Simulated assay, not measured.
Amino acid sequence: MRIYVLVEDYSGYESPFLAQHGISFLIEKAGKGILFDTGQSAEPILHNMRLLGLDPSSHIDYIFLSHCHYDHTGGLLGILKAIGRRVLVIAHPSIFRRHFVMKPYLRDVGIPFRREEVEELADLYLAPKPLEIVEGLYSTGEIRNREDFEQGHIGVYTLKDGQVMEDSIMDDMSVVAKTSEGLVIVSGCSHAGIVSIVKHAIRMTGERRVRAVIGGFHLIDAGDERIERTVKEFKELGVEEVYTGHCTGLRAEAAFQEAYGERFHKLHSGMVVEF
């Protein structure tokens, strides 16, 4: 199993790769390529793929969207056009809902195009429950059992029957792969709570060994208590290695660095990880 970091908030030191607020991974497993999220736009992803010797038309077989936010979905149409053939796009059924913030002003932060535009280029598979994408690699489906300490409103809203409602981001889904060394869990922003996601993956697969957790953990605005609890839970769950960046936040990254030492890795564009 190989994971390419196609775009991330950080490009690394003296790097030819481009960075962008957002995230995109290419996961290779069982002879197939799964593009996990598409950043804000296709251009930096396609640039970085060229540097890595990756051709979208031959290396991407599926696209998985972890949730609706623009920094994870904005590059979708450009990527689909670069692929040049119809592929399967896997996401939650609610991903095209209206999704917005009201502070400091009303602004849409959801997927920045219509469902019909995607369907012109790809086939949608909108599944709220766990799904095996390729052998040994699964969508977690939506995470309904969320740890109490990871719950809380982050200031995003949706519309239901014409009424403004708080949005709990139930479309937040991750990918989990079974390897001979344990689970490798890939998350986009972990709005469901990264500890909740890891525990869900363990319950779903029956595998208690967690080889690595990769992605954004959305602790950028978290207090010290939540950060400390998250690191403690990771250690108690036996998570062996941590790869994080994007929305994790500097204080949380520092806490994981202290706890994991050389087994902590800061994500950057162009990074390649193998298991």
Rank of each mutant, 00 (worst) to 15 (best):
Ala177Trp: 07
Glu207Ile: 15
Asp172Pro: 10
His191Val: 08
Lys160Met: 15
Ser174Met: 05
Ser180Lys: 15
Val198Thr: 03
Thr158Met: 07
Ser180Arg: 15
Ala201Phe: 07
Ala192Gly: 09
Ile194Asn: 13
Leu159Ala: 09
Gly162Thr: 03
Ser190His: 05
Ser180Pro: 05
Ala177Lys: 09
Asp172Met: 08
Thr158Val: 06
Val175Ser: 02
Val184Tyr: 06
Asp167Lys: 03
Glu166Ala: 00
Thr179Lys: 09
Ile197Gln: 06
Arg208Pro: 01
Asp172Arg: 08
Val164Thr: 12
Met204Ile: 05
Met170Phe: 11
Ala201His: 08
Ser174Thr: 02
Thr205His: 04
Ile185Phe: 06
Met170Tyr: 11
Gly182Val: 04
Ser174Tyr: 03
Met170Arg: 12
Ala201Asp: 11
Asp172Phe: 11
Lys199Arg: 15
Glu166Ile: 00
Met204Ser: 03
Gly188Val: 10
Gln163Cys: 10
Ser187His: 06
Ile202Lys: 14
Thr205Phe: 05
Ser196Trp: 12
Ile169Met: 14
Met170Ile: 12
Ser174Val: 03
Ser190Ala: 15
Met204Val: 01
Met173Thr: 09
Cys189Ile: 04
Thr179Ser: 14
Lys178Val: 14
His191Glu: 13
Val186Arg: 00
Glu207Gly: 07
Met165Tyr: 09
Ile194Pro: 06
Ile185His: 10
